[in-house]
């Protein structure tokens, strides 16, 4: 593994300023993946066919696995799963509002368009992290990249099919119009920490560069299928990255953490380390 000149080393080597920047990059990775996965699981036992049910379940579990890796990297900086998720305030989360929106029952077009927007953004983000100055980000990025490729293929092949059908095409167009501004929030800044993230080489592309590449790819693919892309849209508010969220997120967080609270838990169970017992 090649290291960059300004390699930041491991968790213990970080200055306060560096840690703040690494944390900011990791948190959005973890939160985006976790909540995207959480919403994907809505489709388990609800997908159109048994086969599509199995595929979307795979995506959900991949994203959960990635979230687990990123949260673990945050925990190495002195946090816990409890403090990050189960005992946290909903406004501590920094995921894009794209991933927190609920699905209407039966709106498979929303599921696919959202997956597509997210997976293109994830592809670009991971390529901007593969040479990160923070080794843990570099290593985990390369572990994750293989799986994300399949997700993109999955979304694109559904869009190919739906583009050929009048009713499905209309539903896809409606989802594009609705979700595009929310997708742009993926490239919104968390705050002034963005300059440090770029200057320290934690991420090798600026948010504007990532957004431009995303817009170009999305526009070219969807226009090619005959869809209109609202390229003059501005990012939705709330953006999520700034810790401001829709009410849907507050409801989801409440539901997600209800068992933990009702049982009076103070520990989130780890089981995977005990697989061999």
């Amino acid at each position: 593994m090649a290291t960059t000149e300004s390699d930041l080393g491991g968790p213990a080597d970080l200055s306060e300023e560096e840690q703040r920047a690494v944390e900011a990059q990791l948190l959005r990775l973890a939160d985006d993946e976790f909540i995207q996965a959480e919403r994907y699981t809505f489709w388990q036992v609800r997908a159109p066919t048994l086969e599509s049910d199995l595929s979307i379940s795979n995506n959900a579990q991949d994203e959960l696995g990635h979230a687990r890796l990123w949260y673990d990297a945050v925990q190495q900086l002195g946090y816990s799963e409890e403090s990050l998720i189960y005992e946290s305030d909903p406004s501590d989360f920094q995921h894009s509002t794209l991933v927190e929106l609920p699905f209407a029952e039966g709106d498979w077009a929303d599921a696919i368009v959202r997956a597509y927007f997210y997976d293109v953004a994830e592809d670009i983000r991971l390529s901007a992290l593969e040479n990160s100055s923070y080794e843990i980000i570099r290593n985990r990025t390369s572990r994750i990249q293989g799986e994300e490729g399949y997700h993109l293929e999955h979304a694109e092949s559904w869009l190919d099919r739906m583009a050929l059908d009048d009713e499905a095409g209309e539903r896809v167009q409606a989802a594009i119009d609705e979700l595009y501004p929310y997708a742009l929030t993926l490239f919104e800044p968390v705050g002034d920490v963005e300059n440090d993230i770029e200057r320290l080489g934690i991420r090798t592309m600026t948010l504007d560069e990532m957004r431009t590449e995303w817009e170009t790819r999305v526009d070219s693919f969807l226009t090619g299928l005959g869809f209109d892309v609202p390229t003059d849209a501005t990012p939705a508010t709330p953006a999520g990255r700034d810790n401001e969220h829709t009410d849907h997120w507050h409801d989801l967080h409440d539901e997600m953490t209800a068992s933990y609270r009702n049982l009076g838990r103070d520990k989130a169970t780890l089981i995977m380390a005990d697989d061999d017992e």
Partner: peptide, 21 residues
Amino acid sequence: IRKAPSIERKMAFSAKVQDEI
């Protein structure tokens, strides 16, 4: 899957439900 009280439990529930399908 949603109500499970940890990430790893959530993964196990999601995998189990997928297995049943």
